[in-house]
Design a protein around this nucleic acid. Structure first.
Lengths: 277, 277
DNA sequence: AATATAATTCCACATAATGGAATACAATTT
DNA sequence: AAATTGTATTCCATTATGTGGAATTATATT
């Protein structure tokens, strides 16, 4: 009997943290997702055996799984026997994006913020131990999306990430990021959980988070937290600029605008997203 | 015994057309996809019973399905008991997009075309009876994506759609669009399969497709087909402009550029995407 | 042509999904 | 506040559905 076998029945999502206890392999669906995840994290087309090697599933099972994924359009089988993620994902994501309630509420506000600052504004939402970029409004010179919608980035080195995290008490943050490896993207990247927790205290106090070239050299931003009643949604908005064009002092001048925008979004969320109590 | 029950075993994808015979409900995975599809096509959050009504699955089954989808992040359970598509879809789609081989090949070429024409350029790929927009390079005035990446549009009223279709012989087109309803988006929309087949003949001859304000009033475009060896990939590129700013005559002047770009993409595809024969 | 490597199919078997019905929960109404 | 309706969730005996090791077929390499 296989040790790696899934227990399936009972792997409930913790409604509190939104973090899954076991790594998501809920039954048959989880097996399919494992495949998508493997290919996604590889970031390139893979052949059957490449996937088999990284997978916990036996040959036959994996193969049928992949056949099913292909027939649903979630996976695409190329002519050269490689597999890549399917177009159906784009289609579903497009719908997910345009009908997302939170994003729709935030949209006019971040657009206004973009107009006020003249710089690129991001909306990122917390998911597990990552920030997912939900929207982006660019300034004039469209440099081409380096931070693309749907992109997942770490929490500890992004303005929106730290802002979103600041909505939670210290204990939750420690639980959430307990076994996270802190990768040093730049010399300024926060390198430990303790250092992060320290900075979160400042952010909680001031309502403003910074990214001081901690993720990408030459890029910095001001951010502010946006969250719902019971942190069901935790997110952040930021105004981002290249350091050579915008000084840290100038960035600081936008802080009140960013914070104010965040508060307006929260006000509207309270009115529109919460169940009547 | 339930009549609607899936046969599962054996519902192979037709490698020729890429069209699924039965409407995708391949076993357990298909049941999950049905849910996502229902919510996607509704375009707004739905409650459990709303989904139940539109679904072919019984209560208990549907509920467990949805629980699993939530725990995989494909579905999000809101505080007010409504469900919307999950952020995991954005994450996967982001990866699908940036690692897509065909898109990567096309990217520099459509960017060059954008620079030459100064107008918005689209890359759309054929999937079933729809065009999925794979990329978009905008001109200066960013009017905001109305046609977003991942968006699915009909084949019969878009430049890229008609271009892509022109890669197939008439019989295939008739088979593919046999039971499609032709919705009149504008007075110019092609209203029947026969009329479409007629126009495809012209496109096949000239290598150029038009959208003469057939999808959105005031918007027209020139397009050209892009396809691989055995039509494994069938797509189109287009240069789009508002009619008030760019006349049809001007559009015609870009036709050779568009066609040439398409041919360059195809040349590169032949070299990079095909299995050695 | 022969060998090696990878992809796909098969099928007896048991696990994992099913689904009808009962229960818990929430929102209105009286 | 209690009753009523509507909605969401859990239960569990049953079996259909997915499993997975091994055989087969296809593709690449020598």
């Amino acid at each position: 009997m296989d040790i790696l076998k899934s227990t399936n029945r009972k792997n409930p999502i913790s409604r509190e943290t939104g973090i899954k206890p076991g790594t998501g392999d809920t039954g048959t669906l989880g097996k399919g997702m494992e495949v998508l995840e493997i290919i996604s994290s590889a970031g390139r087309p893979m052949r059957f055996t490449d996937i088999l090697d990284r997978s916990s599933q036996p040959r036959g099972t994996l193969h049928r799984q992949m056949t099913n994924l292909v027939s649903e359009g979630l996976l695409a089988a190329n002519a050269d026997h490689s597999y890549e993620l399917g177009l159906k994902l784009l289609e579903l994501a497009s719908s997910a994006w345009s009908s997302n309630e939170f994003r729709k509420i935030a949209e006019p506000h971040i657009r206004a913020l973009q107009a006020e600052t003249g710089e690129t504004v991001h909306l990122g939402i917390l998911k597990g131990r990552q920030i997912i970029y939900l929207d982006k409004v660019e300034g004039q010179q469209s440099v081409r999306m380096h931070s693309q919608i749907g992109n997942a980035s770490p929490l500890y080195c992004t303005g929106v990430g730290k802002a979103a995290l600041s909505a939670f008490p210290i204990e939750d943050v420690r639980k959430r990021l307990g076994d996270t490896e802190f990768f040093r993207f730049t010399p300024n990247t926060i390198a430990s959980l303790d250092a992060l927790v320290d900075e979160l205290a400042d952010i909680r106090r001031s309502g403003i988070a910074w990214d001081r070239e901690e993720h990408e050299p030459g890029i910095h931003c001001v951010a502010a937290p946006v969250y719902s009643q019971h942190r069901h949604i935790a997110a952040g908005i930021s105004a981002t600029a290249p350091a050579f064009r915008v000084s840290r002092g100038q960035l600081a001048e936008w802080a009140p605008l960013v914070k104010n925008t965040a508060q307006q979004i929260m006000k509207e969320m309270a009115a529109r997203l919460s169940p009547r109590t």
